[in-house]
Design a protein around this nucleic acid. Structure first.
Lengths: 352, 352
DNA sequence: AAAGCTTGGGAAAAGGTTTTCTCAAAGGGA
DNA sequence: TCCCTTTGAGAAAACCTTTTCCCAAGCTTT
């Protein structure tokens, strides 16, 4: 119900510097300098202008400033991650890094639609963004837009960059090492890997790191099980792992499963429970992504590799800013480290 | 690795109307009119100017246009939903509604931080947004900012509005009716309700609608079970429902559970399975939110109430635009209908 | 042929701010 | 008293586009 006590909203014109100046009895030039701490004038004059501006609620028109400075204090953020599971932390990091510098972010969801992508990029360019950050849901796919010769600095964060560009991505191999080495430290020796489809680059990166660590440690390497990113696949994989005879010769069942994402891990844990296998007592499980809402709802709560996406976003934002400021930056792909978030699905270290 | 074939990126100054005009041998006034289809001139002149602009890749500077038109074709979107589960669909709807009109969206995540909120609002105002949309993760909580006298039109979408404002929210009672009535049509008669904490307004709205429908149909009403929004609570609630004697006198167990969100529903379904109760054969389950990734991963896939958040966002966006255009709009709260997304957790209607 | 209309196009102001010059007055030194 | 320096502040250009008004030339009408 509408409150009839509230007045009709009135959208008054913002007050301009000219008005401030005239009320303070000075020229706009002097007013501008007073408010920006520039120029020379008596302390009283400066204070009087300040006070007038304050009283009138003066806010400099950012459009006019931008026009003059050829800098809009605005960046565009392109994403195709409609659901935002990966993009949101990245965005949040970017925004964090920029808000303090007075830079605002245009969010543009381009889905996987070329037309939409072009529309957004054109709008951003028209609005004279100082730079562009591209992010996405997959590290190994391009957004459906060409960002190569836009005339503004561009950074890629968690998406496939154009050659010669600057990109920030997660260190998936490092993350996988973290997981497998954690198992190893806990005394687990028969470590399996259940992951997503072969079409994802990260699947191979993580799988290779998994193999590498096992080899380094002298542990038996079993071929990673590739499937989909779903709980259902986690279930199915447990069947394959524990019914088959996968550990060459030994026929021993895994005592640890490193999963390609948290959903798979969840499926694995549920399937293990249904078989009467305890987590973490009989089998340890580690997920990937540290999707909090899943990891914490899992029973037991899931230890998982976190890609530090917010930090990644922050780095991307800061780097873009330095680029905008004219500082040079080496092109190339920077891999940012993951971290392991330990919950209860692996058990405790022997001498924790 | 950096490709050494790619040239160092060069950020050239955008071409201005003046350059176009001078190359076409006309004044800027004429050039402007030519490109905007205004004014009078020979067809050749117009074409020559168009062609020159095209060749130079001229894009009118939106900042200059905005300054003149006192309209930035920009709106601010405030949210405190860091995780984006509710905000993202809303945002996506808003963006959809606006992008075709050339309006871009500043995304501002204010968490629950007053300072951050003020920072973002100030930045938006400085950048002369045409309007503001506030959205959040809870329909019954304010954002940590005061948006009441900003001087620009403001719309609330899926968050608690200030009095006298315009707001769009989901019709939770209607959504609950949809669920309970669906159970009824399927022949379920002992319908329970497991939902979130009493501190949420939607909990009461949905619970009341649940009671209303049961009363209308002459079915036994059991008091809704209030708890948390978690899977764990879903588990626990099943215990209470199926161990206790909740249906007054009859001691009959529920044959349907309407859950306050999809996570609770998931917990309920898992707990039922662990008790040897089949879903949907023995008990039907309906969730709320239609959180696709959860609803589809549940076994069986979960029937759930969808709040149509994208549509809500679209409405909010369009309404803001009409407000910006100066059209009047009635203040008040508009409830938008939910819809039921039927999957497999309720069974089929008797005469499908 | 004079007066009026149409046509094609330009000059200038406006939008709000910043910055570089410029200048008058005041003060200081000789 | 005269010249030079410092101080305080204003004028104007610049950023880029749009729009209103204006003007000159050519044409029509009487």
């Amino acid at each position: 119900m509408a409150s009839d006590a509230s007045p009709a909203p009135t959208f008054t014109k913002p007050v301009t510097l000219r008005e401030v100046a005239s009320l303070a009895g000075v020229s706009v030039a002097t007013a501008s300098k007073a408010l920006n701490g520039q120029g020379r004038m008596t302390a009283e004059t400066r204070e009087r202008i300040r006070e007038t501006a304050q009283r009138l609620g003066f806010r400099p028109n950012s459009l006019a400033q931008s026009l003059l400075r050829r800098r809009s204090f605005t960046v565009g953020l392109l994403t195709n991650d409609t659901y935002g599971r990966f993009s949101l932390p990245v965005m949040s990091g970017i925004s964090d890094a920029l808000v303090d510098k007075g830079v605002s972010v245009f969010l543009c969801n381009v889905e996987d639609d070329q037309r939409l992508g072009q529309l957004h990029v054109d709008a951003m360019l028209d609005k004279r963004v100082d730079g562009i950050i591209a992010t996405g849901k997959r590290i190994d796919r391009h957004l459906p837009v060409d960002l190569s010769n836009l005339g503004v600095p561009t950074i890629y964060a968690f998406t496939q960059p154009d050659p010669g560009a600057i990109a920030f991505v997660s260190d998936d191999a490092g993350g996988a090492r973290l997981a497998v080495e954690h198992f190893w430290r806990l005394g687990r020796r028969r470590i399996a890997h259940v992951t997503g489809p072969a079409s994802f680059a990260v699947v191979h990166a993580r799988a290779q790191a998994y193999r590498d660590v096992l080899t380094e440690k002298g542990l038996p390497v079993m071929e990673p099980l590739l499937g989909s990113w779903s709980e259902a696949w986690g279930h199915e994989a447990v069947k394959k792992l524990f019914d088959g005879q996968l550990l060459d010769g030994k026929r021993e069942k895994p005592d640890a499963v490193f999963c390609g994402n948290d959903q798979i891990a969840r499926g694995v844990i549920d399937a293990l429970r249904e078989r009467g296998l305890g987590v973490p007592d009989d089998v340890g499980v580690i997920g990937f992504d540290n999707w909090q809402i899943v990891a914490e709802a899992t029973r037991p709560p899931l230890t998982s590799v976190d890609m530090n996406l917010a930090a990644l976003g922050r780095e991307a934002g800061l780097t873009l800013l330095s680029l905008v400021g004219g500082e040079p930056a080496e092109p190339g792909i920077r891999k940012l480290p993951c971290r392991l978030v330990v919950r209860q699905s692996c058990g405790r270290p022997p001498d924790g």
